[in-house]
Design a protein around this nucleic acid. Sequence first.
DNA 1: GATTGGCCTTGATTCAGATCAAGGACGCCG
DNA 2: CGGCGTCCTTGATCTGAATCAAGGCCAATC
Lengths: 243, 243
Amino acid sequence: MGTINELSGVLDSVPMDESSALYESLRNHYLFAGLDAADFEQLAKHITVTPLEKGEVLFHRGDDASYFYFIDTGLIELSLIAPTGDKKTLEVVGSGRTFGEAVAFMQGHKYPVSAEALQDSELCRIPNATYVELIRSNADASMRLLADISRHLHDRVREIEHLTIQNARTRLTSYLVDHLVESPVDDQATARLDLPRHVIASRLSIQPETLSRLLRNLTDEGIVSVDDRVVFIHSVSRLRPYD
Amino acid sequence: MGTINELSGVLDSVPMDESSALYESLRNHYLFAGLDAADFEQLAKHITVTPLEKGEVLFHRGDDASYFYFIDTGLIELSLIAPTGDKKTLEVVGSGRTFGEAVAFMQGHKYPVSAEALQDSELCRIPNATYVELIRSNADASMRLLADISRHLHDRVREIEHLTIQNARTRLTSYLVDHLVESPVDDQATARLDLPRHVIASRLSIQPETLSRLLRNLTDEGIVSVDDRVVFIHSVSRLRPYD
DNA sequence: GATTGGCCTTGATTCAGATCAAGGACGCCG
DNA sequence: CGGCGTCCTTGATCTGAATCAAGGCCAATC
């Protein structure tokens, strides 16, 4: 697994093409939609596009944070890493989403998590300082950013809840209902496990072996059927008895 | 343990006295310091003062959130409560601090935690809507609020780190060094356990029995001495070998 | 077709921390 | 003084999930 830092990454990065589809999708992202055209154009001048290969680390926890990122294509894992090497995946972020934007306002300006590519990816690198300057004078964008960061905060509170007052099995069943391909019909539904098992296990704060055993238990109890990455849920209500 | 809701609480609440020391301490709080005098005066008209007795619940997780709070005196516990009745204390907030301010920007406007008084307390109730309206037109206050909520977010990430890649003993030693009465001298220091043991245990996501045993282990190993609420640390470096 | 390596599952065992049960130690109140 | 409630500690036992160890499955490569 290679490691790059933000500086070396700059070597591969190029200015963003101002007439690209990427430019438009950034423009429409809710963190930028509140900016007026002139402001956004100004910001765009400072945005560069960088590729990141699968397995490469964009930044480590504790690195100085001068940028946040928008994912054009690919998949980025945000995680905490113990001195022992154990890893806890906090979040996996995909195309069209941003990560690292909350760090711009933290004292110290260090990333609180590490970021690694789970797939070959294309990222837009947005300088914190420029963005902060712009939204300072833009109430609409400020409000959107406040809502965005508040949502992150709420997500973390839910995560802590799962970790402390729920057990591994409940975390898995929550994960399953959060990943349904469509709404349940007739108390039945299908979930897709679109990530490697070990990444899902880390997200749930369990070992891959435990994930395997829990899925087996649910299968043995006749609650689900597992076929590779597809989990067919025979009874959502039996899967989640306390809803 | 009594339970009130925000509505019934209103009965006891009174408008804030505009020439009180309380008015000044609110004025100087960083969430309000960014407002100009006229704006703050406007906001103050909507702020009321409410007493809360020890054991009373101010709001439950899931309640509609229309207010956030500033603590004049007292101690408020913010917690998650499982259907089984198990409780996880997320944070204990004391005089001069606010809680619930991030909720104003969340979709749904529900409190993600419950709030209960650990001591008789005096709170200022600040209406979200009024505050949000004011900071919308105040870049400085917006930036402070962004920093505030980002710090909360960072705290939660650290909490998750403690819960997932550290064990109970490490959580306790972290708690101890976070609660030193002054900086270590000569590798020695003193920590105060200012909360009831069961509240500390909940904050650390362990049982009171486990807390007791861990303190005993540290004592047996000669690393600390415990005298009621005071923990004397004979060797900070032995307490925290990985710093 | 054999070999290698990545990924996942399965079984056996261990362990950290919870739970259950039984006392202290203290303050408070009659 | 004795009784009582609250809070904390201690010991014995249990258990959910981790760890250790082995093997299965499949795709890529030679």
